Simulated assay, not measured.
Amino acid sequence: MDERKRDSMIAYLRHRMEEYGIEPDDLASAIAGDQEIQERARYRNATGDTWTGDGEMPQWLKQAISAGQRLDHFETASASPMPDAWQKTTDWRDDPFAGSPLARQHSD
């Protein structure tokens, strides 16, 4: 993003924050809360949606499971028994089949 667009976006965001009475500290605490949820998330999809495993299962996970994906496919590294070397080399964001029946793992 070029500098002019960046400055324009910052001015727009400041205006909207002022319009709704949002203080920078409010924004900082909301971001910190989001990070806490991300850290304790037990399940995560390729686009970054998360679920802690508490409460009702989110729609994105229900849809993936109904499409044939297994729940353990979405377990985060802290909840997953996968070897560290495998976790570091796999980037699920680029998986074109994530959440589809083609992503099912079959044990023969």
Rank of each mutant, 00 (worst) to 15 (best):
M1P: 01
R4S: 12
K5C: 06
K5V: 07
R6Q: 11
D7Q: 15
M9P: 00
Y12R: 13
H15E: 13
H15M: 13
R16A: 10
R16S: 07
E18R: 15
Y20F: 12
G21R: 07
G21K: 04
I22K: 06
E23W: 12
D25T: 09
D26A: 08
A28S: 07
A28R: 13
S29P: 01
I31M: 09
A32W: 01
D34C: 10
D34Q: 11
D34G: 15
D34H: 13
D34Y: 12
Q35K: 14
Q35W: 07
Q35G: 08
E36P: 05
Q38G: 02
E39K: 13
A41S: 09
A41F: 03
Y43C: 02
Y43R: 01
R44K: 14
G48F: 01
D49C: 02
D49M: 07
D49T: 01
W51K: 04
G53Q: 03
D54A: 08
D54W: 05
G55T: 06
G55M: 05
E56T: 13
P58D: 03
Q59Y: 09
L61Q: 01
K62F: 04
A64Q: 04
A64K: 07
A64H: 05
S66H: 11
A67C: 04
G68D: 01
G68M: 04
Q69R: 14
Q69S: 15
L71T: 03
H73I: 07
H73R: 15
F74A: 06
T76K: 00
A79E: 07
S80E: 02
S80Y: 02
P81C: 04
P83K: 14
A85T: 11
A85W: 10
W86G: 03
W86Q: 13
Q87Y: 03
T89Y: 08
T90C: 08
D91W: 02
D91I: 06
W92G: 03
R93P: 00
D95S: 11
P96H: 04
P96M: 06
F97N: 14
F97Q: 14
A98Q: 04
G99V: 00
G99E: 01
L102G: 08
L102I: 00
L102A: 15
A103D: 09
A103M: 06
Q105K: 13
H106E: 15
S107P: 09
